[in-house]
């Protein structure tokens, strides 16, 4: 009885080991099963909701929808965004608050999406670009509004 158990144990062990070897042998001979992709050459399409970085949306006239309300700056949990505002003087001589510089610290950003949800005018969005490596750390502090851009007419 003992001997029978001993031998059947060996038999089951050998069978399971051979089963494993059969699978790895199959993968070794069938290279079409390979699931890794050669990243820089082959780029997989990213999911639509992938969050890579925050961008300020500019249209073709170099106009954005940011009113400089600093709602995103207040919403940010770790001080990634800093809005510097200025006062535009309109033709009638009326002062109006406007965006001067949208400072974005990419190195602090956790891609939590809270700023995008806080924005009342949908001026910012999450972009898909994820290749952010730079040689100088200072390059990660970005100015999001393009030079010469101004607020779109009618956005309050």
């Amino acid at each position: 009885m003992f001997l029978k158990k001993y031998i059947s144990e060996i038999w089951r062990a050998v069978k399971s080991l051979l089963k494993g070897m059969k699978l790895t042998g199959y993968y070794f001979t069938h290279h079409k099963e390979i699931i890794t992709q050669n990243y820089p050459e082959v780029k997989q399409p990213l999911p639509e909701r992938f969050r890579g970085e925050v961008v300020l949306i500019h249209d073709e006239n170099n106009e954005h929808a940011c009113t400089g309300c600093t709602a995103c700056e207040l919403a940010c949990p770790n001080g990634t965004i800093k809005i510097i505002t200025k006062f535009d003087v309109s033709a009638e001589g009326k002062k109006k608050k406007a965006l001067d510089t949208f400072v974005y610290h990419l190195e602090l950003c956790t891609m939590c999406n809270l700023c995008i949800e806080a924005c009342p005018t949908s001026a910012i969005k999450m972009a898909q670009n994820f290749e952010h490596s730079v040689f100088n750390r200072n390059d990660l502090t970005k100015k999001l509004n393009k030079p010469g851009s101004k607020i779109r007419e009618g956005v309050e």
Binding site: Y27, F28, H31, E33, I34, I35, T36, N38
Partner: peptide, 13 residues
């Protein structure tokens, strides 16, 4: 190379 192919990877290339 062998380990890569057995683990469905490409290996050093």
């Amino acid at each position: 190379k062998v380990s890569a192919f057995m683990q469905i990877r490409v290996g050093p290339n």
